[in-house]
């Protein structure tokens, strides 16, 4: 743990002194984590790329503020969260699903599991439909509810850490999570009633 901390502090120090290679290393270590977190927040590849790259640009500019109290990834999570919430607040950030990417190399035909070329087309169609409904359920959440749900449920972050990242109490994290769950239960109610998910509830 201490080794990792020292390694990260050294990287930050070098990057802060203008060493671009050190910053590249930080990017390479974290780009997938931050991109997929941004994807969970925005729901689109193009927006995830824009948001995650904004995060790295902000991080680059504020290297001097990193004090090593948390890991680099936690620091980047915080910047991702703040950037996402700020963008939503400005309303200049539209989540456009199925939007044609601006840069062709960005599209690069991302492979979702269950691609028709690799599996049963019917299963693929069902899966696509379910993905659409899941996305719609996530879109019913406010930016803060969505942030809490993504970090708490998809990332498994402790409530305390989520609260620290959002600067809210653990109790508020719980209530945001409950509200998010209620909204998604309404949005996905028909799955619960009509689909056999083949799920065993373990008690």
């Amino acid at each position: 743990m201490e080794l990792l901390q020292n390694y990260e502090l050294r990287l930050i120090k070098q990057a802060n002194q203008g060493d671009r290679n050190a910053f590249r290393e930080i990017v390479e270590d974290n780009k997938k984590k931050i991109f997929y977190l941004a994807f969970d927040f925005t729901g689109s590849i193009q927006d995830a790329e824009d948001l995650s790259q904004d995060v790295f640009i902000k991080a680059f500019r504020s290297l001097h503020t990193f004090k090593g109290e948390a890991s680099i990834s936690t620091w980047l999570y915080r910047i991702t969260l703040n950037t996402f919430l700020a963008l939503k607040r400005k309303k200049s950030f539209e989540i456009e699903k199925n939007q044609a990417p601006l840069d062709e190399s960005v599209s690069a035909d991302p492979v979702f599991p269950g691609n028709p070329s690799t599996g049963n087309p019917e299963t693929y169609a069902e899966s696509r439909q379910m993905q659409m409904h899941i996305q719609q359920a996530l879109d019913t959440l406010s930016p803060r509810e969505r942030s809490v749900f993504v970090m708490r449920h998809y990332r498994g972050m402790p409530g305390k850490t989520v609260g620290e990242l959002l600067n809210i109490s653990e109790g508020t994290v719980k209530s945001l999570l409950s509200r998010a769950i209620r909204k998604m239960q309404n949005a996905l109610g028909f799955y619960r009633d009509s689909l056999d998910l083949g799920m065993e509830v373990q008690q």
Binding site: F35, Y36, F39, D40, I45, A108, D109, P110, V111, F112, P113, G114, S127, M130, Q131, H133, I134, A137, H153, Y154, I181, M184, Q185, L188, Y191, R192, L197, M199, V201
Partner: peptide, 18 residues
């Protein structure tokens, strides 16, 4: 009910980028 909801939400897929 919650387990059913989260089971659906856990089926969320993320793109595997090349």
């Amino acid at each position: 009910k919650l387990a059913a909801l989260l089971a659906v939400m856990n089926k969320r897929q993320r793109p595997q980028m090349s």
